[in-house]
Simulated scan of single mutants.
Amino acid sequence: MTLLVRGIRGATTTAENSAAEIYTATRELLDRMIMENDIEAENVVSIMLTMTPDLNADFPAKAVRSHPDWQWVPLMCSVEVNVPQSLKKCIRLLLHVNTDKKQQDMVHVYLREAIRLRPDLAGEDNA
């Protein structure tokens, strides 16, 4: 069996700029991405996390590190490009995972208002 590195995208939004909201939204998104793609921490190469500039109350990486066995996954937080009229209060994750699945078999997860980012991928299961 050959393992390849695949990317899995996800995004969500928060109701407000607070540490609790950032943690809850990030954890909800990550949990859903793990479930939909049957991910184990040992197979995660790294995670890129971004937030829109209007979110700065805390690091979304705290929610990832709260998962058992995920404290060793390399994480990088960054600010999303501030494009006028873009979705506000948005958290995005890009997971790089070792897997034997094809890229088209990866399940990308868009929750809350972030469904608007990729309506082509946001089926009923992403509501």
Results as ranks from 00 to 15, higher is better:
residue 122 A to Y: 03
residue 126 N to D: 13
residue 127 A to P: 03
residue 56 N to R: 06
residue 6 R to L: 09
residue 113 E to N: 11
residue 82 N to C: 03
residue 121 L to S: 13
residue 94 L to H: 15
residue 111 L to H: 06
residue 50 T to G: 06
residue 55 L to R: 00
residue 101 K to R: 11
residue 8 I to W: 01
residue 120 D to A: 13
residue 25 A to H: 01
residue 77 C to I: 00
residue 63 A to R: 00
residue 65 R to G: 14
residue 41 A to S: 14
residue 87 L to A: 09
residue 5 V to F: 09
residue 71 Q to H: 12
residue 33 M to P: 06
residue 44 V to H: 02
residue 127 A to L: 12
residue 114 A to S: 12
residue 78 S to N: 07
residue 74 P to N: 05
residue 47 I to S: 09
residue 65 R to L: 10
residue 104 Q to K: 08
residue 40 E to G: 11
residue 88 K to C: 10
residue 78 S to W: 01
residue 37 N to D: 02
residue 81 V to A: 14
residue 5 V to L: 02
residue 98 N to D: 12
residue 5 V to S: 12
residue 53 P to E: 12
residue 100 D to E: 11
residue 20 A to Y: 08
residue 9 R to N: 14
residue 116 R to L: 14
residue 106 M to A: 08
residue 87 L to K: 01
residue 36 E to N: 07
residue 76 M to A: 12
residue 99 T to I: 04
residue 100 D to A: 10
residue 16 E to F: 14
residue 121 L to F: 14
residue 119 P to Q: 08
residue 66 S to A: 15
residue 4 L to S: 13
residue 102 K to E: 15
residue 81 V to K: 06
residue 93 L to N: 07
residue 31 D to Y: 09
residue 82 N to A: 13
residue 25 A to P: 00
residue 35 M to N: 04
residue 110 Y to P: 03
residue 71 Q to V: 04
residue 17 N to D: 15
residue 47 I to G: 11
residue 111 L to Q: 10
residue 57 A to Y: 01
residue 121 L to M: 13
residue 38 D to N: 06
residue 94 L to E: 15
residue 34 I to V: 15
residue 39 I to Q: 03
residue 30 L to W: 07
residue 63 A to D: 07
residue 80 E to K: 02
residue 9 R to A: 14
residue 38 D to T: 02
residue 90 C to E: 13
residue 96 H to F: 15
residue 74 P to C: 08
residue 119 P to Y: 11
residue 29 L to T: 02
residue 38 D to M: 01
residue 114 A to M: 01
residue 47 I to Q: 06
residue 112 R to C: 05
residue 110 Y to H: 10
residue 50 T to C: 02
residue 13 T to K: 01
residue 126 N to K: 00
residue 105 D to E: 15
residue 29 L to N: 01
residue 4 L to A: 12
residue 100 D to H: 07
residue 54 D to Y: 08
residue 47 I to V: 12
residue 127 A to Q: 11
residue 88 K to Y: 09
residue 22 I to K: 02
residue 28 E to T: 04
residue 94 L to D: 14
residue 46 S to W: 06
residue 57 A to Q: 03
residue 59 F to Y: 15
residue 102 K to I: 09
residue 78 S to M: 04
residue 52 T to A: 04
residue 32 R to N: 14
residue 85 Q to M: 05
residue 21 E to D: 15
residue 30 L to D: 07
residue 58 D to S: 13
residue 93 L to E: 08
residue 73 V to C: 11
residue 79 V to K: 06
residue 98 N to Y: 13
residue 71 Q to Y: 10
residue 82 N to L: 01
residue 38 D to L: 00
residue 19 A to C: 07
residue 85 Q to E: 11
residue 68 P to V: 04
residue 69 D to R: 05
residue 75 L to E: 02
residue 88 K to N: 11
residue 41 A to W: 04
residue 54 D to M: 01
residue 69 D to M: 08
residue 55 L to A: 07
residue 4 L to H: 13
residue 74 P to T: 00
residue 97 V to R: 00
residue 71 Q to S: 14
residue 65 R to D: 10
residue 95 L to F: 12
residue 16 E to S: 15
residue 50 T to H: 01
residue 123 G to Y: 08
residue 64 V to N: 05
residue 19 A to S: 14
residue 25 A to W: 00
residue 87 L to N: 09
residue 104 Q to T: 10
residue 60 P to M: 02
